[in-house]
């Protein structure tokens, strides 16, 4: 029997689908926090989410006939729901609203690892030369320079700034090696947003979001958002680029043990480059998250 999720996790908004990809009038099924869900979109285009009983993927359905609905929110191209009592707001990504950006959901990828492990991978620059060889990094340039991490009290999020790394091809529009600068935000226990210097315009930053849907404690789905200042690459190019990146992470993450994220500092060996991961683990601990993690024995 799966364990009931902790109240914090239960009351969070969780991503469940790319809104545009939800079929109108047909059922789609998924799993969230060990709970079976059914989803569809009404003729008005609005998503509807409810606890699945005997519906099957692809069944025809009239959204209006669904009476017992879960709360729903649409944001950043995705549909979010909650199994408990949700907060009023989802975390902000103000850049998403800027008119000249290309915003797109870049698909979802299932990974057999806990959601927090996947968040940690997203925050981690040290693996670029080894896992994303010749794309996000390449040997011999392996150094992770000092960067700053703080847990912002007022926004209740982990913030890593001045993260620099030498990359051969940091984004679709990049040519040749350059040092890129990143800012990472973790505004939600299972979501992270990355800002990186944009090859086209020095004053602006490309934004990449990763939203993890914790299906079980050891299984998640990564949903990607890109909000780019890139006038040349096509959407297909940009999508393929991000999918290559996550396709490279998947086999590594699936070979990580234990699959849940251990919060006891003595369970693994952190180095200075892992500062943001350490802050993230502490933040989860302090929040009292127990879903998808191995809490520190008190």
């Amino acid at each position: 029997m799966p364990q009931a999720p902790d109240p914090i996790t239960r009351n969070l908004w969780h991503v469940v689908a790319a809104t545009d990809e939800l079929p109108i009038g047909l059922v789609e099924t998924t799993l969230l926090l060990d709970t079976r869900l059914a989803l569809t979109r009404g003729s008005d285009g609005e998503p509807v989410v409810w606890l699945r009983t005997d519906e099957e993927n692809g069944d025809e359905i009239d959204a209006d006939s669904v009476l017992e609905r879960l709360p729903v929110r649409t944001a950043y191209g995705y549909t979010w729901t909650c199994l408990g009592t949700p907060d009023a707001e989802l975390f902000p990504i103000p850049e998403f609203a800027e008119p000249d950006r290309v915003n797109m959901s870049c698909g979802s990828i299932g990974i057999h690892v806990s959601a927090p492990r996947a968040v940690e991978n997203f925050l981690d620059m040290g693996h670029f030369p080894y896992v994303h060889t010749d794309i996000l990094g390449s040997e011999p340039h392996t150094e992770v320079k000092e960067y700053d991490v703080e847990v912002s009290e007022e926004r209740d999020e982990v913030l890593a700034t001045k993260c620099r790394f030498i990359q051969p091809m940091a984004a679709k529009s990049a040519v040749g090696a350059m040092e890129v600068e990143y800012v990472y935000r973790v505004p939600h226990p299972f979501c992270s947003v990355l800002y990186k210097s944009c090859p086209e315009d020095e004053t602006r930053r490309d934004v990449i979001g990763i939203f993890l849907q914790p299906m079980t404690e050891e299984r998640c789905r990564a949903h990607l958002l890109q909000s780019m200042i890139d006038s040349t690459s096509t959407i297909t190019d940009l999508r393929r680029f991000q999918q290559t990146i996550f396709g490279q992470d998947k086999p590594i993450l699936e070979n990580q043990y234990p699959k849940k994220l251990p919060l006891d500092p003595r369970s693994e060996t952190p180095i200075r480059a892992d500062k943001s991961a350490i802050a993230y683990r502490r933040w989860l601990s302090q929040k009292g998250i127990t879903y998808g993690v191995i809490p520190q024995a008190s």
Partner: peptide, 26 residues
Amino acid sequence: NRCLHRGVRLSIGINEGQELKCQYHG
């Protein structure tokens, strides 16, 4: 079969002859 750093299996690592190199962060 587990790297001390982040728990990745060392069996997917690289045998460099006299040292074993972990796949995740080298």
